[in-house]
Amino acid sequence: MLKVSVRAAVAAVTFILLLDFCASTENIPRKWVPFSANITGLSSSNVSDVDVKQELLCSILATNDGKANLFCFGPKGCVFGHVYLPDVEGEQTPGYNCSYSHVCPHDNKTLREGEKVPETFCPNLNLTCTKRGMVNLANGVPPLTSCTPPFVQHPFGCMYFNKTASLTLCAARAYCQSLGAQVASPTTHDNYLALVAYLTATY
Rank of each mutant, 00 (worst) to 15 (best):
M1T: 11
V6M: 04
R7A: 10
V10W: 13
V10D: 12
A11H: 08
I16F: 14
L19S: 09
D20M: 08
F21I: 14
F21W: 15
A23H: 06
S24K: 03
T25R: 01
E26D: 09
R30I: 02
W32R: 12
W32F: 13
W32K: 13
V33C: 11
V33A: 10
P34H: 08
S36T: 03
S36P: 00
A37G: 06
N38Q: 06
I39L: 07
T40G: 11
G41H: 11
S43R: 08
S43P: 04
S43H: 07
S44W: 11
S44V: 14
S48I: 06
D49Q: 15
V50W: 09
D51A: 15
V52G: 13
Q54L: 15
Q54A: 15
E55N: 11
E55A: 14
S59N: 13
S59E: 15
T63R: 14
N64L: 06
D65F: 14
K67S: 09
A68M: 03
A68V: 05
N69E: 04
N69K: 00
N69H: 03
F73P: 13
G74A: 15
P75E: 14
K76T: 08
G77T: 14
G77V: 13
V79D: 11
V79Q: 10
V79W: 10
F80N: 07
F80W: 10
V83L: 14
V83D: 12
Y84C: 03
P86T: 06
P86E: 07
D87N: 10
D87V: 09
V88L: 04
V88Y: 04
Q92C: 06
T93P: 03
P94D: 15
Y96Q: 12
C98D: 08
S101F: 09
H102N: 12
H102T: 10
D107P: 02
K109V: 04
T110Y: 01
T110S: 00
R112T: 05
E115M: 04
E115P: 03
K116H: 02
K116E: 01
P118R: 04
E119W: 04
C122I: 09
L125V: 11
N126D: 12
N126W: 10
C129Y: 01
K131R: 02
K131E: 00
R132P: 01
M134W: 02
M134L: 07
N136T: 07
N136P: 02
P143Q: 02
L144F: 05
T145R: 00
T145Q: 00
T148R: 12
T148G: 07
P149Q: 08
P150K: 05
F151V: 02
Q153K: 11
P155S: 03
G157P: 01
C158Y: 05
Y160K: 05
F161Q: 05
N162C: 04
N162L: 05
T164S: 05
S166E: 11
S166M: 13
L167T: 08
T168E: 05
L169S: 01
A172D: 13
A172W: 03
R173K: 09
Y175G: 07
C176S: 15
S178C: 05
L179I: 10
A181Y: 03
V183N: 07
T187Q: 12
T188S: 00
H189V: 08
D190S: 12
D190I: 08
Y192F: 05
L193A: 12
Y198Q: 03
Y198C: 01
Y198E: 00
Y198R: 03
T200R: 09
T200H: 08
Y203H: 14
